[in-house]
Design a protein around this nucleic acid. Sequence first.
DNA 1: GGCCCCGTCAGCCGATCGGTTGATGCGGAG
DNA 2: CTCCGCATCAACCGATCGGCTGACGGGGCC
Lengths: 210, 210
Amino acid sequence: MTPSVRILLCDDHAVVRAGLLALLGGEPDIDVVGEAGSGEEAVALAAQLTPDVVLMDLQLGSGIDGVEATRRIATAGAGAVNVLVLTTYDTDADITRAIEAGATGYLLKAERPEELFAAIRAAAQGRTTLSPPVASRVMARMRSPRPTLTERELDILGQLSQGLGNRDIARALFISEATVKTHLGRIYEKLDVDTRAGAVSVAKEQRLLP
Amino acid sequence: MTPSVRILLCDDHAVVRAGLLALLGGEPDIDVVGEAGSGEEAVALAAQLTPDVVLMDLQLGSGIDGVEATRRIATAGAGAVNVLVLTTYDTDADITRAIEAGATGYLLKAERPEELFAAIRAAAQGRTTLSPPVASRVMARMRSPRPTLTERELDILGQLSQGLGNRDIARALFISEATVKTHLGRIYEKLDVDTRAGAVSVAKEQRLLP
DNA sequence: GGCCCCGTCAGCCGATCGGTTGATGCGGAG
DNA sequence: CTCCGCATCAACCGATCGGCTGACGGGGCC
């Protein structure tokens, strides 16, 4: 018979971890070998325990976030550790970042538990599983590539969401006001808004900022 | 011996519900008698099953939100149904709204599972339990009452976060631009910002808008 | 080498915003 | 009845924003 799949849980909510632990306890071929409540802990435990799959939440209260933890785990040494993202959000930004960071799969917590079990078994063999809504978004993005904000534009957007004026943004980033305005114009285009307030609103909703 | 506590789960994430179900299954004196994936479903099942406690998440993807569901359940008929909020967020706005809506307790998912069990048993008897961080916030708010936005100010803030200019906000709410500016000034004061972008940022972070 | 994206900068101008002062009416609390 | 919070409106003014046009250099790609 096939050996059990060894799992490391990473979620900052103790109740959720306990729930997953109890849930996965019902599957004989799935063994939870560790729990992490932060990204740092997950990276350390992944290196130490070398589980088959890390079940990773993206938003982890403090410290490094799930994307960064995923990146470190996925790119570490042997690379035999597969990261399966299990999270609430299905925004383009999150999905894109997680995949770029090397996630093996991306599941939503809204998924049925059976799908989770199946995805875990698939991930253990390096096979990818995406929740239907996630897959849809990925396909949609392939078909009509939506404009992505550049690094610099995200910098401006970050300052903008602090409520700073153009002059202060310019000073904070060591550029001229004219440049700030140029970037803002492009940001408005890409986010399909025409005011700073609208840009901040979209940025927060799409979780474009950390 | 004391009879079992009858529980109704309400969370829009199937995996989380299954996790809680498995977790609570380990407690002999706690019986999960129903599951709801939406606020509407929770209200209907609460009326039909009359559980001792409803475990309610606040953010429910679509339909009515957890606060509204809590209000309807708490104010329905006999009122013997206690709502225990179990959620991720500990912002003042969420806590305040939930308590006003009639929640019996407010727990964070970051809490230890044992605390959850204890809180459920307490809630079954109508006793209140608050997570430590939540209790702290409540106390802090009592000591230094932070300014609360009025209904009207929230209206303006809502329009503002759509990126509308003062003129458009005025038209949308059937008031004059002068009034919009007056409200905005007070909103800036209360949120401790001085630009519209900053106000939107704070509003999103504090979850002041639905 | 040419092309295009990115980041940088400039100047202009009308529209809008933010701050201020002051005023009215209405409703509830004391 | 009076006080106060809330919502409403007015007029003013300097500062800022948004949109525009145009420009330059660097880096990657073919």
